[in-house]
Amino acid sequence: MSESLLDVAAPEASDPDDQFDTRRRPGIWTALGRGKGLAGLILIGVVVALGLLAPLLAPHSPTEQIPGANLVGPSGAHWFGTDEVNRDILSRTLYGIRTDLLVVFLAVPIGAAIGILVGLVSSWWSFTDVIAQRVFDLVLAFPTLILAIALTAFVGPGLRTVFFVIVAVELPVFGRLTRTSVRTVREMPYVEAAHVIGAGSLWQLRRHVLPNSLEPLLVQLAVSMSVAVFIEGAMSFLGLGVRPPQPSLGSLIRDGVRNMYDAPYFAVGPLALVVALVLGLLLVSQALAEARRR
């Protein structure tokens, strides 16, 4: 019922300043300044700061073996305790964050950028579209972790593989979304209007289609970043991720599980950080998505 909305909005006549719906639609960015969005940003900020400042904050080097400190529980000297080869878990955790940040803020944007490019190209030329769609189908036909395992078989385990997997997983996700989003916007009468006045494809794309297709991609970027933390964790957990002695949150959790009965405290710190990072990204994505719906 259109009437229900119109009834609230001011009608035509009467004095000029009373005529407009002056409630500007706030940009989705404002969602990050309050509530869920702000909470998410703070969580992410804290984790990022910890990771960036690791060299200043960490009491030890991540690989330094401290004599006599074998699987020591949390104490003033070692807040998170030490592991089975006498390393300070807090230091390893702080440096481990950096690995995850690399994955989240580098691999995901790279995958997204390539995906968006492919999506744009394929939504404009039908020939490339058919090929791209089939390739996307193919990649998306593998559950993420199975794809990760298959790729590991190909390139061997390591941080490089994690990078590779994330790019491979995100590429079709963003490719698809760009294509759908662009196609939806292209059907809008205002794009048609630009076409009628003689604007070329590139003009339509640059001035109308792209700016109006960006929002769903932004939401997806936040979602994908949280998925990336998950993928890194899962791969390192399965022993397909970073190689020891390099720490990552996932590999620390794996070590934690191995020592679960002797040192139940082991995984607590890395677990908390993983949850904080994923939760932060998720909250941001939810806040953006909700702002979009409004």
Binding site: S226, V229, F230, G233, A234, F237, G250, I253, G256, V257, M260, Y261, P264, A267, L271, V274, V275, V278, L279, L282, L283, Q286
Partner: peptide, 21 residues
């Protein structure tokens, strides 16, 4: 939100810690 935010390996560990350990 919590259930989505907790990665599987995290919930797995927490479940084991709580109900088995």
């Amino acid at each position: 939100t919590l259930a989505i935010a907790l990665p599987t390996f995290v919930t797995g560990l927490v479940l084991i810690l709580l109900f088995a350990v």
